[in-house]
Design a protein around this nucleic acid. Structure first.
Length: 342
DNA sequence: GCAGGCTCGAACAAGGTGGA
DNA sequence: TCCACCTTGTTCGAGCCTGC
């Protein structure tokens, strides 16, 4: 491991990102778990239940004996969400049960594909299934008051004689599945998987959620600690954030946002690098499009993720067009003229 | 004496590397 | 491809110091 450069190396650079059937999809995370501190930052088993309250909303997270799901375990969810969104973009009905090749997930999330990588993946799925959440978060227009896991179950469908899993089946929780169907997801940078520190990943998620395409986002260190779910003392947490900000000022390694520390105001500042596209439900409230327009859009931008382009378009729009479908198709055509095939 | 701040090291998990 | 060992990062607690 290099001590000089803060990003992990790209282990699978030759275009096999989201190999299998999600080759051209962008990684996506659900808004709920990006906004709230559901995942543990610790690399040790974190078996303390936690309670998070913000703006009248309450989340209780209860770990299993294996500990809370960690920020690294979240990669499994991101992979599943990305695969389902990709399927929806291709006109398929999303299913709560998803099957994939374990090796594809490991490659897509920039992990080792050695035997140990599979062992860690198995442990990650156990933690995801064991972590229970009680919440009143609203997803897909429904306010849910119930206890559920991050995933309902995970099953290794085939396993080689060497003990290596091949095909994995995951049943997503209703909460995550609702978010996917309601398109309450945000596109993440592929560089996200190269961030090595759990706290770096968490800060990126928060910047992505709260800053979006704004020029900058500020958050007091006290609130940031709450949002991160860090178990450190405030002082220790401030030191860790300062270290990340310092590293980013030296290497510019944080994707999409520059991270700085305003010591006078005791605030973290995330400054957009201008690389972020939009996501559903951003600035102008454009009504849902006619489903048929997506087929036409796919023809206009062959090979592209039309939902991603739609999100870009919704973010770009400054007013509601008189004919949203035609406006969207026009946007798609210009998109393809500028960029060609992905 | 007590509270709070600071430093340091232990424990643990995950990733990297090199040899078999 | 596997294994052993090393490095790195996070968290936490112990011990020390300082001020009230």
């Amino acid at each position: 491991m290099s001590a000089d450069y803060p990003l992990l190396p790209d282990r699978h650079p030759q275009g096999d990102f989201f190999v299998c059937d999600i080759l051209d999809a962008a990684p996506k995370g659900d808004v709920g778990s990006m906004e709230h501190p559901i995942f543990s930052l610790s690399t040790k088993p974190d078996i303390r239940p936690r309670r998070y309250e913000h703006n009248g909303m309450t989340i209780e997270i209860k770990p299993s004996v294996d500990g809370l799901a960690t920020v690294h375990d979240r990669d499994v969810l991101i992979y599943c969400i990305s695969a389902l969104i990709k399927g929806m973009n291709d006109g398929m009905e999303p299913q709560q049960v998803i099957r994939f090749q374990a090796a594809d997930l490991l490659k897509a999330t920039n992990r080792m594909t050695t035997g140990r990588g599979y062992t860690l993946l198995k442990a990650a799925m156990e933690r995801l299934a064991g972590t229970r959440i009680s919440t009143n978060i609203t997803t897909g227009g429904q306010e849910i008051f119930e206890t559920f896991g991050l995933i309902e179950r995970a099953r290794i469908v085939r396993e080689t004689r060497e003990g290596r899993m091949q095909e994995v089946e995951v049943k997503l929780s209703d909460w995550v599945f609702n978010a996917i169907r309601a398109q309450e997801v945000l596109t993440l940078s592929r560089e996200y998987f190269r961030l090595r520190k759990p706290l770096e990943r968490r800060i990126y998620e928060l910047a992505r959620k709260h800053c979006g395409r704004q020029k900058e986002w500020r958050c007091s260190i006290v609130v940031l600690q709450k949002k991160c779910g860090s178990g450190s003392s405030l002082r220790e947490f401030r030191r860790l954030v300062a270290a990340i900000a310092k590293e980013d000022s030296e290497y510019d390694h944080m994707p999409d946002y520059r991270i700085r520390l305003d010591e006078d105001r005791d605030q973290l500042v995330a400054i957009s690098r201008g690389s972020v596209g939009g996501d559903v439900g951003a600035t102008v409230s454009i009504p849902p499009l006619d489903p048929e327009v997506y087929d036409m859009a796919r023809s206009a931008v062959p090979g592209w993720d039309v939902r991603m382009i739609e999100a870009e378009w919704r973010e770009w729009a400054t007013e509601v067009p008189r004919n949203p479908e035609m406006a969207f198709l026009g946007f798609c055509r210009k998109w393809f003229e500028r960029r060609g095939r992905p």
